[in-house]
Simulated assay, not measured.
Amino acid sequence: MLVTLTALTSPLAFAADAPKNVAAAVADTTRPETDTKRDADRKPAEVLAFTGVKTGDKVLDLVAGGGYFSRLFAGAVGPTGAVYMFNPTEFTKNSKNPVPANGSKPDPAHPNITFVNTSINELKAPEKVDIVWTSQNYHDLHKTYMGEGFDIAKFNKVVFDQLKPGGTFIVLDHSAKAGTGRADIESLHRIDEATVKKEVEAAGFKYEGSLDVLRNKSDDRSAKVFDPAIRSKTDQFVLKFRKPN
């Protein structure tokens, strides 16, 4: 069954109605202020509830950046779960900030997070996971700095293989105009969601539905996502795919 969910209540009201593990993760007082200041735009309670994350789950946060969602997932899965915070070397090689060593625990407040830092072509989680998550980075996997040997079709199959049967792959990204395919990736950092669906389903995933809470009809999708007029308020899609049992 395909499901499209919309936000019918305020974020705070939804957080109160969210699954207990999700509400606790959002309310976690160890979350840094730099994270909580972003909650109004990122709607973490709604988004995590949509993923279906449960206590004890194993999660791979794909191209995790600074770990905003890694910390949320760490709270949601609890001490019996695990979060693998993956930042590929293709993304970190020019970073001015120290990159945690592969296999290290980068966040003392969330010891169930383990850092994974390898080439994206060598991605392999320490164990099969229940959820693979990527936020605002799927479009980056098509960019020129990925190298000539990178193949998005092969990569989606790698993601498929990281999941347990019945596991889910969630893709959140900036929306491009319908029908534009990959045309706006380099210039606007946006991708057509129909292209994402086509590519992910080709790896064997089954599309399950979308979440509309990050949609913004006032974004005409013609501006670069870093434009101050639209930054943090772009029209974004959240798509859920499942690996068949």
Rank of each mutant, 00 (worst) to 15 (best):
L2H: 11
T4G: 10
A7E: 12
L8T: 14
T9Q: 10
P11E: 07
A13S: 13
A13F: 10
A13D: 15
A18S: 14
A18F: 08
A18V: 09
A23R: 15
A24C: 02
T36A: 07
T36D: 06
D39K: 05
D41Y: 12
R42P: 12
K43W: 07
P44A: 10
A45S: 15
E46L: 14
T51Y: 03
T51V: 07
K54N: 13
G56T: 13
K58D: 04
D61T: 09
D61L: 08
L62Y: 02
G66R: 10
G67K: 05
F69T: 06
S70Q: 09
R71Y: 04
F73I: 11
G75L: 13
A82D: 01
Y84D: 03
Y84P: 04
M85W: 10
E90K: 08
F91I: 11
K93V: 09
K96P: 03
N97H: 13
V99Y: 08
P100A: 13
P100L: 11
N102R: 09
G103E: 04
P106N: 09
P106E: 04
D107P: 01
A109M: 05
I113D: 00
T114N: 01
T114Y: 02
F115I: 03
V116W: 00
A125W: 03
K128M: 07
S135F: 11
H142A: 10
K143C: 08
G147L: 09
F150A: 10
F155V: 04
K157P: 00
K157G: 02
V158N: 00
D161N: 15
Q162V: 08
K164H: 03
L172Q: 15
A176R: 03
A178M: 08
A178H: 11
R182W: 06
A183Q: 09
H189E: 12
I191W: 05
A194Q: 14
A194I: 03
V196Q: 03
E199R: 02
F205P: 00
G209I: 08
G209Y: 06
D212H: 13
V213S: 14
S218G: 11
D219K: 12
D220R: 10
S222K: 15
F226R: 03
D235G: 08
D235F: 05
